[in-house]
Design a binder for these strands. Structure first.
Length: 583
RNA sequence: GGUGGCGUAGUUCAGUUGGUUAGAAUGCCGGCCUGUCACGCCGGAGGUCGCGAGUUCGAGUCUCGUCGUCACCGCCA
């Protein structure tokens, strides 16, 4: 045994005990005749002390110590003469009788402390050092807690945790696949799963009834703060259920986990149709921590001689509480913000509803005070509020206004961390028209079942068909999503047809699933949660990198081990691969 | 594929209109110090201003390119 206790364990009632600790040197405070060493492990920090009574052997070893040396320290627990209330072990210290260097350390490139002096790049390069810091380690401990809680709940509720293969077949729909060449099958490739979708459906055919898995998924797409090329899903599927059953089950899971991990009680999750989310929030993942709803004022504002509004398909507005005082500079700033290419609005119209009840707007030339009062009434705006108006084609303007709403929410500090407002977004469209390739794509995936009421529209107006699909959204973040699946091979074949697959292509890609459906497929439905996003939300962080032990950077590189990297020609030969020159 | 921010000592940063020898804090090294816990005091070392080109009498500073990194748009069923 290297240690009798951890560095976070000893208290006043251990005084007098002979103990041995092991850990990293956090800090040495040398006073000549006496010295203090802060010894750290993941449980805490304990102070070691030497004085004139300490053996020469110990003091000589102590002279050699530096930050981050790994040492083993033996001594007697003693009450401190001056206590430190800031740390849990602050009542005691260890008077050293033995000291051994287990492993020396080079001077670390940044300090291992809560307020580190290391920048992001450096900390990523030395991630194993960054992980020694409380802040980062706590995120991973939280991650483990959430995983444990999810496993508990699902196992208690009869779900079977089942692993599915990682080397699978590439499918053309959806994200780009990571591919893996097969040495034993020259010229052929596996793909890494974007999700275990088909396998979990096959498990339903197999009668597994309730399945889950906390599983790595892989998508070869460009990254963001909340996207990694490999990420973790809580993947679930159930048989003999309808949408309502799935929503209820996983609402319980979410409530259980929030209660268990954060001691937060969540209210029942509201349900919101996709169409409402788009019209009222300008987003399919609305942040309902604050109101500031979008209002369609197209008919109100048209035919008053303002050609920009008159020619627009849609004119929408939000009312920002208490912002009528905004200066010219602040309004200009907002105007520039919405005109950035990322938002893409042409301009911004404002109406100040002043405290005295008067109006000042950028369109006073076209609209009377009565007109503007009408707008304010429609938006339920009060004196002191600032009305912001965007116009243009409906699809773009609604989302731009939704972005503006979030920006104003940020400025007014309405998006408080630690407040959690979940909701289910339901009734997604089944299909999405793609202009480029002139065909429909599945909005969720090709196995999503249409809403039975809309099946008649499949031939006449496929774009109008709603899906039995649902997303769990919390604080404007898409945390999970799923659908009721098609379990009838005829309907599945029809879906492939609408998606532009020939029966031969469908058979080649998904034949094993369609075949499986011939042998008694139960009605089934499922859902998958973005585990990294869920944990980062629990931690109050915006980036999922902080809850992943060894994440990749913006370009999908691991800067610690410098991967991806070229491979030797021998390896390429073995795989029958030849590299193409870059242009 | 695109837009923008950042890149100066080991680290975090400052650096004025383009002008003498590029600074601070912290870390590191040496010395002193018996109650510190952000210990204190004295001294020291440490720089390809990311890289390349251009403008200029003169570039850390301006321009272009490039590399790295971050955020976002496209993309991500």
């Amino acid at each position: 045994m290297y240690r009798t206790h951890t560095c976070g364990e000893l208290r006043a009632d251990h005084v007098g005990e002979e103990v041995t600790l092991a850990g990293w040197v956090q800090k040495i405070r040398d006073f000549g005749a006496m010295s203090f060493v802060d010894l750290r492990d993941r449980y805490g920090i304990t102070q070691l002390v030497t004085n004139e009574n300490t053996s020469a052997k110990v003091t000589e070893t102590l002279q050699q110590l530096g930050r981050e040396f790994v040492i083993q320290a033996t001594g007697t627990v003693r009450e401190r003469s001056s206590k430190n209330k800031n740390i849990a072990t602050g009542e005691i210290e260890i008077e050293l009788s033995g000291l051994k260097i287990l492993s020396p350390s080079a001077v670390p490139p940044f300090t291992i402390q809560d307020d580190t002096d290391g920048g992001d790049d450096l900390r990523m390069k030395y991630r194993y050092l960054d992980l020694r810091r409380n802040a980062v380690r706590k995120n991973l401990e939280l991650r483990a807690q959430v995983a444990h809680s999810v496993r508990n709940f699902l196992t208690e509720n009869g779900f079977i945790e089942t692993e599915t293969p990682v080397l699978i077949k590439s499918t053309p729909e959806g994200a780009r696949d990571f591919v893996v060449p097969s040495r034993m099958n020259p010229g052929e490739f596996y793909a890494l799963p974007q999700s275990p979708q088909i396998f979990k459906q096959l498990l339903m055919v197999a009668g597994f009834d309730k399945y889950f898995q906390i599983v790595k998924c892989f998508r070869d797409e460009d990254l963001r703060a909340d996207r990694q090329p490999e990420f973790t899903q809580i993947d679930c599927e159930m048989s003999f259920v309808e949408q309502e059953d799935v929503l209820n089950t996983f609402e319980k899971l979410a409530k259980y986990t929030f209660k268990n991990v954060l001691d937060v009680d969540l209210d029942d999750f509201p349900r919101m149709p996709y169409s409402t989310a788009m019209e009222k929030y300008g987003s399919d993942k609305p942040d309902i921590r604050f109101e500031m709803l979008l209002h369609d004022i197209t008919t109100t504002v048209q035919n008053k001689g303002f050609s920009i509004f008159d020619s627009a398909e849609y004119v929408g507005a939000i009312a920002a509480k208490g912002c009528a005082e905004y200066s010219r500079k602040q309004i200009d700033e907002l105007t520039n913000w919405v005109k950035r290419p990322q938002i893409g609005a042409k301009g911004l119209v404002y109406v100040k509803y002043n405290e005295d009840g008067s109006f000042k707007s950028s369109v006073d030339k076209f609209y009377s005070a009565d007109d503007l009062k009408g707008w304010a009434e429609q938006l339920n705006a009060n004196p002191g509020d600032l009305i912001l108006v965007l116009s243009g084609d409906k699809a773009h303007t609604v989302t731009a206004l939704g972005e503006l709403r979030l920006e104003m929410g940020n400025r007014l500090e309405l998006r408080k961390k630690g407040t959690f407002k979940p909701l289910w977004v339901i009734d997604f469209p089944l299909l999405e028209w793609n202009e480029e390739s002139k065909r429909f794509f599945a909005m969720h995936h090709p196995f999503t079942s249409p809403n039975p009421e809309d099946i008649v529209l499949l031939d006449s107006d496929p774009g109008k068909v709603r899906a039995n699909a649902y997303d769990l959204v919390i604080n404007g973040v898409e945390i999970g999503g799923g659908s009721v699946r098609i379990f009838n091979s005829e309907l599945q074949a029809k879906m492939f047809d609408i998606l532009g697959f020939t029966p031969e292509q469908a058979m080649a890609q998904f034949g094993f699933l369609m075949n499986a459906f011939k042998y008694g497929a139960p009605p089934h439905a499922g859902i998958a949660f973005g585990f990294d996003r869920l944990v980062s939300m629990f931690a109050g962080l915006d980036s999922i990198r902080d809850v992943i032990a060894f994440p990749k950077n913006n370009a999908g590189r691991d800067v610690m081990n410098d991967s991806p990297a070229p491979i030797a020609n021998e390896q390429l030969d073995e795989l029958f691969l030849q590299l193409k020159k870059l242009d």
